[in-house]
Design a protein around this nucleic acid. Structure first.
Lengths: 192, 192, 192, 192
DNA sequence: TATGAATGAGTTTTCATTCAT
DNA sequence: CATGAATGAAAACTCATTCAT
């Protein structure tokens, strides 16, 4: 596991340490030690610590995006898509706590907004497209799609934080359906 | 504003810089320069950078707690209280973006969970008490109070992030009532 | 005790702290606190830390010189004078351990040789005069007086260090006479 | 001399500066400059200034111990051993004035007694064993062995300080024999 | 490609000294 | 006289980055 190259070793070590200690409290030396390579080797694969951080983030982010898109095509309504995606989000977050932590740490990092193409955009755009469609069809509340997407993510994050302490509970089908209900209730338009 | 003492000057400079650059990327020297005092002066008022960070955080946190509690007593139902509090949260967050940022930065800081009595506890406990009561009365969804509180905060945060770009929009009464409706829909129990 | 002036308070506090912690590890602040005066007050009585150290040393040194000269006039032979002086040295050292420590600390301080008139000179000159006379009279070994004086002091210091742990033992008259014998044996010329 | 490694360069520079300026008055920067290396390099070889001091001391101490033990086995009586050792002590001290100074500085350092295994123990124990044996055999004065050892060291130190100014004089065989006589006279028991 | 010794800019912190009150 | 807030030079130590091997 991890021996298809020095690059992966370094990335995995970095994910582990960054998630546990934070970006600033982790030195290049720490990562090199954890990865089992020399300090100089780090710079053969990553030109700088900043770039390593960015690539670690992008790595985690890509895994998340991939996982979150699974099976979305099968769902018809916007709410079904959003609920399906909630499952994906939770499954990923609970099975990849380190990568999730990295995403959150990076998102709240000052200065990260400055790097274009860095942050969450793809995830948000996916969601916003679905949300926009749902609003247009009258399925979702008539609020700015950007706001509604944020709310959706806010709820998903809340659930992740809550289930994180005891990931087993999320496996319970009844719990999942209750959580889907929360999503539906918050986002769906009044019917009648 | 800010000349009633070196201590305040330093705190205000620290709030500004920490919020903009993060805790680690801001040096004591930077803060001293921004505050217009000498490096050594910092240590007359704060025994270490760690302690400065902690006190800056507590300062922001206290302002937030105070602001969020305003007028809660007048509300009767749990939902009314939560909606009133949403107003307070948004008003504070939009009028004190730096302090809000500090709160979020500190909360996601690795290692900050270790200092007991530090983090968000008071705010969460306030909310959880209301939520628990609402659940008991059948007013709110029958979910773990801790989860429901997280969801409430998740939605509030989402709204803050969304309105942050254009704080004026939150002043619109129609927008506010729509946002309250989201809170109500997500948290309230099914009636029948 | 110590209230005949700020100056004395400061000196006494300095003696205590310098003896216990050393010159470098004791800050002006520490001394001010111990003396119960403000930091600035220190500089009304001593122009600098270096000067305070020098004056503290001279104070201890003067006490020592005074104590060591007591009763010397009554003794006739060089050996009697040296033995009497040994008593004085030991009595002073054991009853003024702080002052003795200061003297030793200052003596081994690098850079202290540079200040003229600082170090031990008076004590040494006293002794050397006696020693020289003793040599001339054939009473003491025919060695350079400077060497013999050093040896005398070396033995006295050794005794001080040895009795320091249990000062009571020095009160025993038999012990004292044994110690005098050591002095006599080492310094006196062969008789025949 | 000194180019068999950075570590030695640093140690030698440290010995020089510590001996001349003292431990506290010598900064890591000073040593780095004297050794011709960068500040950071110091910390590749010594984890802290305290540790550097301790290792410098141990280095000097070991050299001393080694030198002082030479040829002791050949001597039979306690007095012969102590005289032979006096030669060793003087030879080492006069040929290694820096190392000797370091030993004395470290010994009189406040706080150095706290590090166990640090100070002079080995040297003292060596001597005390010889002294104890000499007392038991009636060869030396019947005084506490600890006191007699101190006196021996006191005399040796006195001689070192005295010859330091003009080391050539110690080479004179007549001088040496006179000095040995002082040792014999001070320590040996009365014969009759 | 891989190493790790070497660097030096930058960080936190201390403290002797000054000076307005 | 007395104070103690303010200063800034200097110290110990860290760490991203380079480069000779």
């Amino acid at each position: 596991m991890g021996e298809q190259g020095k690059r992966s070793q370094i990335m995995e070590a970095a994910v582990r340490l960054f998630a546990e200690e934070g970006f600033d409290a982790t030195s290049m030396q720490d990562i090199a030690r954890e990865a089992g390579v020399a300090k100089g080797t780090m710079y053969l694969y990553f030109p700088s610590k900043d770039e390593l951080i960015a690539q670690v983030y992008r790595h985690c982010y890509r895994m998340d995006v991939e996982a979150c898109r699974a099976g979305l095509a099968q769902e018809k309504t916007a709410l079904d898509k959003l609920c399906r995606r909630l499952d994906n989000i939770m499954d990923f977050a609970l099975s990849h706590p380190l990568e999730s932590r990295i995403e959150r740490l990076y998102g709240s990092r000052p200065g990260s907004m400055r790097r274009p193409g860095d942050c969450l955009e793809e995830l948000y755009e996916d969601i916003e497209a679905v949300v926009r469609e749902g609003i247009d069809r009258g399925e979702l509340k008539n609020l700015p799609s950007e706001l509604l997407s944020q709310i959706y993510y806010g709820i998903a994050t809340a659930m992740y934080l809550s289930f994180q302490a005891d990931p087993e509970r999320w496996a319970d089908p009844q719990v999942r359906s209750q959580c889907r209900k929360v999503i539906r209730d918050s986002l769906s338009a009044d019917r009648d």
